[in-house]
């Protein structure tokens, strides 16, 4: 399956970016062969508002079935949920470590936003 890991760099050695909507990069990872494509999120990094919504749309457009990130706000959560994408929280470390934890089934799936949005 294809998953997105938020990261501060373009490969699996990068650190997991704790933000979802304003993550530096989205790493689209194929869990079968561990192939990676990095997608720049610069546009949302600088957005005045609604970064989570646009990020959610972009991740859905990449065809990901799950997201691994540090935190997720209410609107990003709503968009990802509408798109049927599961969300898992990673405590930190590299994207590679997060991928291993995801494959081992040790990451917790979240059923609600764990951070308030900017307007709440």
């Amino acid at each position: 399956m294809k998953i997105v890991i938020t990261a501060d760099g373009t490969d699996l050695d990068a650190q997991v970016d704790p933000r979802f909507g304003r993550a530096r990069y989205f790493l689209l990872v194929d869990t079968e062969d561990e192939s990676v494509t990095a997608h720049d999120n610069k546009q949302n990094l600088n957005a005045a508002q609604g970064a989570g919504i646009q990020a959610g749309q972009n991740v859905a457009g990449l065809g990901a079935e799950a997201v691994v990130t540090g935190n997720v706000g209410p609107r990003a959560f709503g968009v990802l949920q509408s798109a049927g994408i599961k969300i898992y929280l990673a405590g930190g470390g590299t994207a590679r470590e997060a991928l291993e934890q995801f494959k081992a089934g040790s990451l917790q799936e979240v059923g609600a936003a764990n951070k308030p949005g900017h307007w709440m």
Partner: peptide, 15 residues
């Protein structure tokens, strides 16, 4: 201009 509309593969979501 306000990132209030997300277009998903099968639906549109509005904040």
């Amino acid at each position: 201009q306000f990132n209030a509309v997300a277009c998903l593969p099968d639906r549109v979501v509005i904040a």
